[in-house]
């Protein structure tokens, strides 16, 4: 086993800052003091490992995993698929990818969501899977609807799917949101625009992928995720501690 090396410094200029005035909730939930930079120790370079036995056969199929027998979720049927890579373009294999989302009307199955759009009795809204030996993952779901939220009086989130990825070290832990190509709400969203770099925002938009669509069945979008790269320990190996 290769000894874990530290991860590349996170490029904070491409990440959203803690406090973003336009995203109002961040104003009281953002630390006033800057984060203290910490060189990786063993606890940042390692992370949890998950096994196939922990994942059920329908866990990555949101069309079916909450549906009554013989039923299926309502909405635009899509495949969301992609590859998890690190900054060295190496596939991140066997890592846990989790998603959650609203239904086709923009309503979440959550006690705190009081939006008037109806729940879909055949849609739960969560999925999980492990990447394969090439870092690929795939989900089958419906395209979520946009929904209003109390930020400005007339704020609407673009259609999005929340994604969580682990990687191999706790320092790679990432939660993000996947948006869909062509959605005019993306440019207006203060959560999207919390990301300061327009090129970095593009990294959050999944293109339509007709090659992965299934004829007469469902469309597909491709969303690749890049986690921090890991150094090879060329000259230093000071981790061991003795």
């Amino acid at each position: 086993m290769i000894k874990p090396g530290s991860f590349y410094q996170r490029d904070m200029q491409r990440q959203p800052p803690a406090r973003v005035e336009a995203y109002k909730t961040s104003v009281s939930r953002s630390p006033n003091y800057p984060r203290i930079a910490l060189e990786n120790t063993i606890g940042e370079m390692t992370g949890p490992v998950f096994g196939h036995h922990e994942i059920g056969p329908l866990d990555n199929d949101l069309l079916q995993n909450f549906a009554q027998h013989g039923e299926t979720a309502l909405g635009e049927r899509i495949i969301l698929h992609g590859q998890v890579l690190d900054e060295n373009a190496r596939p991140v294999t066997n890592t846990l990818v989790e998603i959650w989302q609203a239904n086709a009307s923009g309503r979440y199955r959550h006690k705190n969501d009081s939006y008037l759009a109806p729940l879909d009795p055949n849609f739960g809204g969560c999925g999980r899977t492990l990447t394969d030996e090439n870092g690929y993952y795939a989900f089958r779901t419906i395209k979520p609807g946009a929904y209003p939220w109390r930020n400005w009086v007339n704020s609407w989130r673009p259609s999005h799917i929340h994604l969580s990825v682990f990687g191999t070290g706790f320092a790679q832990r990432l939660v993000t949101q996947c948006y869909f190509e062509g959605d005019p709400l993306i440019a207006k969203c203060p959560i999207v625009n919390a990301v300061p770099d327009p090129e970095a925002i593009e990294q959050l938009i999944a293109p339509l992928d007709l090659n992965a669509a299934i004829p007469l069945d469902c469309l597909a979008y491709k969303f690749d995720v890049v986690l921090r790269g890991q150094r090879s320990t060329l000259f230093e190996n000071r981790l061991e501690g003795s």
């Binding site: 590349y8 996170r10 490029d11 491409r14 990440q15 959203p16 995203y23 961040s26 059920g56 329908l58 866990d59 995993n65 909450f66 890579l85 690190d86 900054e87 060295n88 373009a89 989790e98 998603i99 959650w100 609203a102 979440y108 199955r109 959550h110 006690k111 705190n112 969501d113 739960g124 809204g125 969560c126 999980r128 929340h162 969580s164 990432l174 939660v175 993000t176 949101q177 959560i191 999207v192 919390a194 990301v195 770099d197 970095a200 925002i201 990294q203 959050l204 995720v225 890049v226 986690l227 921090r228 790269g229």
Partner: peptide, 29 residues
């Protein structure tokens, strides 16, 4: 030729659906 890390986004108010669905009464897993 390095790639660049995917930007983070907030987990939002409904993070439980993804991470702890039973806390919201969803029994899928």
């Amino acid at each position: 030729t390095y790639l660049q890390e995917t930007p983070s986004q907030t987990a939002g108010p409904y993070v439980h659906i993804g991470f702890a669905p039973r806390a919201t009464g969803i029994e899928i897993y």
